[in-house]
Structure formats: C-alpha cells, structure tokens
Design a protein around this nucleic acid. Sequence first.
DNA 1: AAAATGATCAAG
DNA 2: TTGATCATTTTA
Length: 206
Amino acid sequence: MKKLDRSFYERDTLVVAQELLGKYIVHKIKGKELIARIVETEAYKGPVDKAAHSYQNRRTPRTEVMFGPPGHAYVYLIYGMYLCMNIVTEEEGMPCAVLLRAAEPVEGLDEMAQLRFNKTYKQLTRSQKINLTNGPGKLAMALNITREDNGLDLCAEKMFICESDSDSNFFIGRGKRINIDYAEEAADYLWRFYIKNNPYISKVKE
DNA sequence: AAAATGATCAAG
DNA sequence: TTGATCATTTTA
C-alpha cells in the first residue's frame, strides 16, 4: 500500500473528499496497525461555508490547524463526548478540511473492539461489528484517535492514508451533510460523499 | 425522544 | 466570567 503525499491533499476540498473514499486510514498504535477503509466523508470549505468552524476565515485556537499546510489532522471534541477526525486540505492559509464520517474495519479488529466495547472482536454481536466505525465519533474511538493527534502530520509515520490497490470499483453517492441545520443555505450543499451500498456508512435520519 | 457531557467562543 | 451552542452516540 502506498502512502498519499501532501500533493493529494493540496487540492479542492470537494475533490479530496470524494477521492478519499476507498482509501485506507492507518494508525500505528503500540506496534500494531489499526486500518480502516474510508467509506463516507464530508467537505468543509471554511471561507465560504457557514457550516465550517472556520467560516469567513474565522481564526481561533481551535481552527488554527486548518490554516496550516494540508495533510494534517484536525481533531476536535464534539458534544462534550466524542472526537471528530478531519484532514486539512487546500493550500496553506485556506482553512478547509474533510471530515471522516465512516469507515470499514480492516485490520486491528480486536483492538478496535476493545476501544469501542471493551471486548474482543469475537465477542461482538453482529450489530456491534457494524457499529465499530460507522459514524465520526465511533470511527475516532475505534482508531484510538485522541486530542493529542490534533495537528498531526499525516504525511509522517504515526498516522497516514494509503492508496487502495484493489476494490476501487464502486459508485459514489452524494447528499447533504449531517447535523448542520444552523448553516442556512450551506445546509443544502451536497458536500457529503459515500460509497453506495456499503454496509458501514453512517445512519442518516430521514 | 432525550440524556450524557465539556470545550469553545463571543458577548457582557 | 458566563452561557448557549454543538460536523454525536447511546439508551430507552
């Protein structure tokens, strides 16, 4: 598997969000590799996007990493309990990112099961296996992503994204982003992307 | 349907 | 300093 380099991320956020589908996120943890296949993403284009934390280039301690170079992790706490994993995109100074919303567990299944449910993978119910990484907070928990990972360079060794060498044969679905009702007209942008018919995409309320 | 839970940020 | 808000998940 070949690691993506910085030029992959230094492009339009909508393109990066779509092209991240089917790629593998790898997190090295205590000599083990936790690996999951990305199946759902959302684009956040700060300068023009009312849904983004960095809307109108709002620069605060939290949004600072999005102003930095692409290919870094933007990790933040949401609802007081869960972390969301994003990847900074576009050129330095453009506060944009892609939220990783869901993935398909590939390697390190026992570690993920432990992190999510404090069980071995074998002990999980069918429902729990599906629920390991099918939402942004769940994904971050299963991959052991923490606040310390905020700002981490994803072109380095600890955590990175790899090309899929197989299974890049899928259709991409597109829809409105989730839980951004406050964002007025931006709430209707079709900036959420997912692999059609993949069982690990997040639950969407109708 | 609603609780859990705490950082964040703009207003006062 | 305060308090509303929140790119969610779980439980009931």
